[in-house]
């Protein structure tokens, strides 16, 4: 029986069909929508102590799912969660595994060639986390030292660019995901971890001794973070855009922000206490989906 099932799966997998560019039709046919989620992108998208996906962007996505249900007239539409990583999120969206990615993905020009983004729902500042005791306060102090970052992230490219421009030489060490990279900092495998500030603060918050760490140094980049979907799918993009803009207009997004950034959150009830930045405040008034390049013009 199982073998038969597997054979059928093989046959289905091998039966060639074009990649669906119409997400709504695909979702309707399947009776299910697949959300891409992260394991440790605090507090945007991560797994709680019951290993269930939660977070600010996961909630935004759930509002989108509601809108899809309404539009398709399928109140029973199922939601599937697909864990994604920094290295596979884009391939998984383009190959059709994930319909909507609810993680912490930077919207930039290179990625826009492959995927599309919803209006920006979070703006992050790329900085570094260090151990308080190390006395490090700036990037220049990292010359010749091991610096952690997560593979597949824009931080990798930012560090490359910074090295080239300033002539510093980091010894890069790569974590598979953010928790891995933080572990490198925690276990002294790296003296700094360069990443989006919200992720750093979230990781510090869940660490054993939060007081041992701090986020310091110059901002390497300001990056718009948004939900990610397939390119060239105007119907789905319009639905996602309208939903997100509606949340901004009604003030609901601000409430969601307060709930995840300014209040105790799982897994251990800590509070990030991180007020909304100026960029995001502006965006709530005038939403857009501009890429990072628009924020970092020199």
């Amino acid at each position: 029986m199982t073998a038969k099932l597997v054979l059928l799966c093989c046959a289905a997998a091998l039966a060639a069909a074009p990649v669906a560019a119409d997400t709504l039709a695909k979702v309707k046919e399947a009776g299910a929508i697949t959300l891409g989620i992260r394991e440790s992108s605090y507090p945007l998208s991560y797994l709680d102590e019951k290993q269930q996906p939660v977070g600010y962007h996961v909630e935004v996505c759930q509002r989108v799912v509601e809108a899809v249900r309404r539009q398709l007239g399928q109140p029973g539409l199922k939601v599937q969660f697909q864990p994604v990583t920094s290295q596979n999120r884009i391939p998984l969206v383009t190959n059709g595994t994930v319909d909507l990615e609810c993680g912490s993905t930077t919207n930039n020009e290179a990625r826009l060639k492959q995927v599309a983004f919803a209006p920006t729902t979070y703006v992050t500042y790329v900085r570094m986390a260090v151990k308080r005791a190390s006395g490090i306060t700036g990037l220049a102090q990292l010359h010749g030292k091991p610096v952690a970052t997560t593979t597949g992230t824009t931080s990798v490219q930012l560090m490359r660019a910074h090295e080239k421009a300033k002539g510093v030489d980091f010894k890069e060490v790569y974590g598979k995901d953010h928790a891995d990279s933080f572990l490198m900092l925690e276990t002294d495998r790296a003296v700094a971890f360069v990443m989006d500030d919200n992720l750093l603060l979230g990781l510090i918050m869940t660490s054993k001794n939060p007081a041992d760490y701090q986020v310091v140094g110059e901002t390497l980049s300001v990056e718009p973070i948004a939900l990610m979907l397939r390119r060239d799918d105007p119907a789905f993009k319009a639905l996602v855009d309208d939903t997100v803009k509606g949340l901004m207009k009604s003030g609901e997004l601000e409430k969601l922000y307060a709930r995840w950034f300014m209040a105790p959150i799982p897994p251990r009830g800590a509070n990030m206490n991180y007020p909304m930045g100026e960029h995001l405040r502006q965006l709530l008034k005038a939403p857009n989906d501009l890429p990072a390049e628009a924020y970092n013009k020199r």
């Binding site: 997998a13 060639a16 599937q80 190959n95």
Partner: peptide, 23 residues
């Protein structure tokens, strides 16, 4: 998991993909 669905347009999801691959 990553390449074949691009060609077939029929992604399987992690668990099913793992079952097919290992078989």
């Amino acid at each position: 998991f990553l390449v074949i669905p691009m060609l077939t347009g029929r992604p399987l999801g992690t668990e099913a993909s793992a079952l097919v691959t290992f078989t």
